[in-house]
Design a protein around this nucleic acid. Sequence first.
DNA 1: AAAAAAT
Length: 730
Amino acid sequence: MPKNKKPAGGRPAQNFDPRYAKKRTGGPFRGNDSGSRGPRRDEAGRPARADDRSGGPRREGGYERREGGYAGPRRESAGSGRFDRDDRRPARDDRAGRPAFNRDDRGGRPPYNRDDRRPARDDRPAYNRDDRAGRPAFNRDDRGGRPAFNRDDRRPARDDRPAYNRDDRAGRPAFNRDDRGGRPAFNRDDRGGRPAFNRDDRRPARDDRPAYNRDDRGGRPAFNRDDRGGRPAFNRDDRAGRPSFDRDDRRPSGADRPRFSRDDRPASNRGARPAYDRDARPARDSRPAFARDDRPRRDDFRRDERPARSAAQEQQIDVVHERLEAQAIQATDVAEVSFGDLGLGDNIERALAELGAPRPFPIQAATIPPIIEGRDVLARGRTGSGKTIAFGAALVERVLRQKAGQKREFGRSPVALILAPTRELALQIDRTVQPIARSVGLFTTQIYGGVPQGRQVGALKKGVDIVIGTPGRIEDLQAQGKLDLSQIGVAVLDEADHMCELGFLEPVQRILRLTADGSQRLLFSATLDREVAALVDEFLVNPAVYEVAGETQETSTIEHHVLVIDQRSKSDILDQLVDREGKTLVFSRTRAYAEQLAEQFEDAGLTAVALHGDLNQAKRTRNIEKFAKGRAQVLVATDVAARGIHVDDIDLVVQADAPTEYKTYLHRAGRTGRAGREGRVVTLVTRQRQRKMDDLLRRAEIDAPFDQVRPGDELISELTGGPTVADLTA
DNA sequence: AAAAAAT
């Protein structure tokens, strides 16, 4: 999280730096983009896309030069789990190298997390206290020694503070009212089971509030704070308590089950069914065929059942696209275009080359010119197609032209904002945008939660041009008067459709409303759809909409498989899937399961780390870094890692829990097969979920084979793509 | 269910 604003001070060892260079290099666009969709028309209003349409074949070689060389660490880890454990022990020092003590360590981790979290909290109070302690001390000294100075010092201070405070207070209540109206609604909805009751309660309360509000303004915040303070505290207690209980429960059961399972399974399954399995497979293969035959019927039924839903949704989608006049960009049309041709300056072009992007990808060629021109832009380009560079480079050029001739001022307000749904993504975007901005003398900073705000505020005080962050902390600092959004002339929403989902939309709307009137808005996502209509209608003016032609599964480098399993065998099958060479990313639906799986894989002798919202930010960053650098073979994550996150060379994505939305599937799958590399996605489903999975894949326009598997089946080791640790050590 | 601000 060091987001340094300072010019020279090179970046403090950033996790993905080396790797990062490759990241964002772009997508799997191949020279042979067969799927040309609609004619490429030149809209009247379309800012001339400077692309010379010399339709040469697109070369992709330049983007593959950097190969992630993590063979070393991998080899060690693959060689034997015990070596890994030994390696870890010294690293963990305190925890001592007793596998048996792992249980103790597990019990000990939650307290560590709490400690880690507290320090973060302690830092702020600590800084505050220091500041407070410091000021009174100085005041006292000033009062005692220098009356004249005291008056001077106090006056400006008092003048400034009350003035600012009054302004802020005057301003905040108004905003607070809006916010309170919006947030509690979401909180209550989120809290879940009482929406109806809450709403009922609220309405009368709101009716009463106008009168009560004025009187109670002082009182409510107190109540709100109490409520807020109490609930999170309970949550944290619960979290801390549950994991330990769960872990305790799991250990005995886990210790017992594997023994019983292994004993039972070999006896029953291997003994009796192996022959049946092989015979049964063809039969199973035929089932999907039957299922497919059945599916059309279901579709018919569903169409009958859903007319309201699907029709409405499709209409909305059509409306959005029709009204926005989406253009499909042909890769061949931009094959010979350079970043300079698109309007970017030499410095930026050089910075991009250093990032591993010597020439623009289609989504970049399509969107950069209109962004520089100042138009609102919607863009859809599949995962790993280079969207970050598209908006990042164009935004820097745009800001540069706007600020041309202006002096750089200390404490200036930021003029551009990039919003992302997760802290890791915000950090990653900054890793791309910062070097581009620096190349032309602009400054960026990250504004996201989970870390002390002091550093972020310090950067803002010095003066920042581009802010990159997550909604919560941005609103927080804005409310504190430490972040001025009024000068924001360009606002980017990465993962825009996700940012329009419940829980994100309102904060995003509030933030956008605080930006300058008529400021430019850019919405990017691999799954941009009608969900962004709420924002488009309010914040965008005559936007240009782009997508890349030919983004079909045929042109994808990702291979998809669905394994139909017994719930009981899930654990063993997962062990088998992740026991392999190469980086494996495993998705789970819940934080607890992610944590559980990471421990399970560790117990199996692999190096595995978890990534989810229950971890403090330091640990989140540490774990994803370990995975990126190859010091962990397996990353088990919640959907916090589903969108945008780029780690080189993930060649297998395993969905331990199948997603419920096709968009989630696409984004999770998109963690592999980036920039033209090959990747594989394996999704586990139970027999009962098979049909839902089939529907989901159809919506995602993905064709994947369904295979029933049991632990030990050859298909599993085929999918892992290589010999396992067990094979090597046997 | 998860994510996003702390206190």
